[in-house]
Each structure stands twice: as structure tokens, then as C-alpha cells.
């Protein structure tokens, strides 16, 4: 069938009007329905006004404590291991006092204090600089305080990495689903429960949102034997608030005003 220009324009015009009008009608009818992206929340899911963490340094006694906690996170979140620091992706790791709390270093601190393995991960700040600078809202703050990533929207501009004062963000400089020169996959134990990422997007700790939705505590919290405590900072009766009330706690770079949600109990001796 051949059509002339006039006919073509007619058909094109009518289908455009039907298309636009049709969508409006259908949208109107579907009021109250859920979008494909939405789900009825699990009634057992954990909720809070502002999730926060307390890291109790007295519970991290050996290298094994640290390794177990890191593995609990990296294994279930398909965090790739590229085997070099340049391309490194990490969600939770350890560093020493001097580098975790720059500006608060104490030249007369004990060797014990200097050597303590401080667990660091995304601070899920109340006023996150990364969210402020993201040009596509690919990183955003949930109502419960979790700073989330939409890895499908991220354009990989890395503005958030420049903005984060805690170095919490990693970029997929290469394809995490790939293999190294020896054919070994970068993701050592693929967990089908959690999505893998593509190259060219930024990622970080997402507060185990997928576990919270099912009523489970974050993986690091579960693996830490009380070393990392998780709870609602806005709830005065929560375990985190009780710990913060009982102990002297510090946060990383509080002077920058981002209001980090990880509190560290340094401990070490009677007076601490």
C-alpha cells in the first residue's frame, strides 16, 4: 500500500493525538494502582526515621574480625575485586585512626590506638554532599536516611566522588562482570540475589536496603558480633541511641556539616 504525503500527515497527526490522549486516560483510570517499580512493602521490613550505626572499637580484636565483616558485605553485594588499588571498588574497609580522623591525630597516642582497625563505609549523612551535586538524582536520600544509588541512572560523571569528604565512593573503571587476564571472574562468588553493576557507574554501601526490606539487619552488623550496631538515631530508646548516650563517641569530619550517621566508640581504657 502506498500513501501520499497528505495521507501520511493525517495518520501521523491522528495517532499523535490518540497517543497523548490515550496515555492521559489510562493514567487516570489507574489511580491508586501501583507502578511497576513499586511493591507493597513487606510488613516485616525494618523502618526508621533515620538509620544510623555505632561502631564499637572494643569488639574488633583481631584481623579475623575485620575480614569477616568486610567479606559479609562484599560477598552478598557482588563487589568486584580487580586486584589493583587504581580500579578498586570497596563498600566497607578498614583504616587506622590517623587516616580515618585526619585533623584529630594525636602525636602522643599509644601504639595500640594508632594500630586499631577502624571500619569505614558510607556515612549516610543527613546532609550528603554527594546527593547535592549529582546532576541526575542517581544518588538520593531515602526518607529513612539511607543514601541510595540508582546504578541505572548514573552517567558516571564522578562529581559525587569529588564531593564526598569521606572517600566512600568507588567507580567501576572496568566491567565488574568481566574476567582478569587468567580468566578468573572479578566477582569471586556471584550472588544471584543482588544485581551486579555495569562499567562506568559509581557505587557504595547502600545500607543493605534489600535486607532491611525483608526485616534483616545489615550484613556487616550481623557479622560483627556487636562491633557494628544499627538502629534508629531518632528513636531515644533504640540501641544506637543508648550506646551514644552511655559512651563518648566521635564521628568523621563533623565540622563539614554533613552530619555523618556513623558514631565511633573509641574505648581503650577506663576513662574513655
Amino acid at each position: 500500500m502506498s500513501i501520499n504525503r497528505r495521507q501520511f500527515l493525517k495518520i501521523a497527526g491522528i495517532s499523535t493525538i490518540l497517543g497523548i490522549g490515550g496515555t492521559a486516560v489510562v493514567n487516570g483510570l489507574r489511580k491508586g494502582d501501583l507502578e511497576a517499580s513499586q511493591m507493597e512493602p513487606n510488613p516485616e521490613g525494618l523502618t526508621a526515621k533515620r538509620w544510623g550505626f555505632v561502631v564499637d572499637m572494643s569488639k574488633f580484636k583481631s584481623e579475623a574480625d575485620v575480614k569477616r565483616v568486610i567479606a559479609s558485605c562484599h560477598d552478598i553485594h557482588n563487589v568486584p575485586d580487580f586486584g589493583n588499588p587504581k580500579d578498586e571498588v570497596k563498600w566497607i574497609w578498614k583504616d587506622d585512626y590517623e587516616h580515618v580522623f585526619p585533623g584529630q591525630e594525636n602525636e602522643y597516642a599509644t601504639e595500640e590506638m594508632k594500630g586499631k582497625p577502624f571500619m569505614v563505609f558510607c556515612n549516610h549523612c543527613a546532609y550528603p554532599a554527594c546527593v547535592r551535586v549529582c546532576p541526575t538524582k542517581a544518588t538520593f536520600k531515602r526518607k529513612d536516611g539511607i543514601v541510595m544509588m540508582d546504578m541505572h541512572r548514573c552517567i558516571g560523571c564522578r562529581f559525587c566522588m569529588a564531593a564526598c569528604p569521606f572517600g566512600a565512593r568507588s567507580f567501576n573503571f572496568r566491567d565488574p562482570r568481566g574476567t582478569d587476564a587468567n580468566g578468573q571472574p572479578f566477582i569471586k562468588h556471584l550472588d544471584p540475589e543482588f544485581p551486579t553493576r555495569t562499567k562506568g557507574v559509581v557505587e557504595k554501601c547502600t545500607g543493605c536496603y534489600e535486607r532491611l526490606a525483608k526485616g534483616k539487619m545489615p550484613a556487616c552488623v550481623e557479622a560483627s558480633n556487636g562491633g557494628i550496631v544499627f538502629g534508629d538515631l531518632e528513636d531515644p530508646n533504640s540501641e544506637v541511641r543508648k550506646l551514644i548516650g552511655k559512651n563518648y563517641t566521635i564521628r568523621r569530619r563533623p565540622e563539614l556539616g554533613t552530619q555523618p550517621s556513623i558514631y565511633y566508640i573509641i574505648g581503650g581504657n577506663e576513662n574513655a
Partner: peptide, 12 residues
């Protein structure tokens, strides 16, 4: 050329 996901540039 600096973007990790150049095909998504229109997301801005």
C-alpha cells in the same frame, strides 16, 4: 569523554 556511561548523557 570523561563520562563513564556516555550513552546516558541525556539523563542530565
Amino acid at each position: 569523554v570523561d563520562l563513564g556511561q556516555p550513552t546516558r548523557v541525556m539523563n542530565v
